[in-house]
């Protein structure tokens, strides 16, 4: 009885509907406001301003590097957390996810204390190699990696836990050593999870603000990423801030859309 079903589906309790509508308005209105206030006629000229392009280029480059680093180190960490058999594994898991809940500014301060010139690692780097990390593009990448790698780890660990170990056993009986099993069976089978994690990681890195401004500062062309540029523009040039925000919004929507496609493809 399709008619009956439609009628039943419409009957949403008012106690749920009202807050849902208010909440949706709260989420959507700011985005609509951004679009409404956008200087559409000036947009092409604004988009090609050198300062704007510098910030965009820097953001894309650093976020991508941070994602690559997160993959390089995060996937092995996820493997250890999912498959490792050692004491203190749950403690380690908790520690790894701390940056997820830590205010990014605090993360920036912590990074500064360790990698700063007087920090444990920073002083050593400075003396041995004459390398100074804070307030450099490297610092931007480190700040982004610090806040975004946990997203990748959590996602990949979940995928590893969900993976069927028997396929790895089958590979072993066919003569594959552990490393080959990982590269030829485990990794391809959890690829959707790794990809989803990498996209989330990249999006988080792209939006990074607090840790970056604390640890890397706000130097145009060197450490001034898009979110920092938006914040700075807001003080002097509202339209520039809107254009920058629009770009970030567009990137977020594209990422979300690609993720959704991926998820529905997997499901």
């Amino acid at each position: 009885m399709p008619a009956k079903r439609t009628r039943q589906r419409r009957r949403v309790p008012a106690a749920l509907l009202a807050p849902a509508v208010v909440g949706l308005a709260f989420l959507i209105l700011p985005l609509a406001g951004l679009l409404a206030r956008a200087p559409w006629t000036e947009l092409p000229a604004r988009l090609t301003e050198p300062a704007m392009l510098d910030a965009l280029r820097l953001s894309l480059a650093t976020a991508t590097t941070a994602t690559a680093l997160s993959l390089l180190f995060g996937v092995p960490i996820a493997w250890l957390l999912a498959r490792g058999d050692f004491p203190g594994r749950s403690v380690l898991r908790a520690l790894v996810t701390v940056p997820l809940v830590l205010p990014p500014v605090v993360g920036g301060v912590a990074l500064l204390l360790v990698f700063g010139r007087s920090g444990i690692v920073g002083s050593w780097l400075h003396e041995r190699f004459d390398v100074t990390i804070p307030f450099s593009t490297t610092a931007v990448v480190l700040a982004m990696t610090f806040v975004s790698m946990p997203f990748l780890i959590v996602s990949v660990e979940g995928a590893l836990r969900g993976a069927d170990l028997r396929f790895e056993e089958a590979a072993a009986t066919l003569g594959a050593g552990r490393w080959t099993v990982f590269t030829h069976v485990t990794l391809p089978m959890i690829a959707p999870g790794v990809l989803a994690g990498a996209v989330l990681c990249w999006a988080r890195a792209l939006g990074e603000f607090g840790a970056t401004i604390t640890f890397a500062g706000n130097f145009p062309g060197r450490t001034q990423t898009m979110p920092l540029a938006v914040y700075l523009a807001l003080q002097s040039d509202l339209e520039a801030a809107i254009v920058l925000s629009l770009i970030l919004l567009a990137v977020s929507v594209v990422v979300l859309a690609s993720l959704r496609e991926r998820w529905t493809a997997v499901a």
Binding site: D164, R166, F167, E169, A170, A171, A172, T173, L174, G175, A176, G177, V185, P188, M189, A191
Partner: peptide, 20 residues
Amino acid sequence: PPEHRRIGVVFQDYLLFPHL
């Protein structure tokens, strides 16, 4: 270890690698 035993297994639900 299994990878050096040269013992082939046909598993109950085959366990063919789905990505290959």
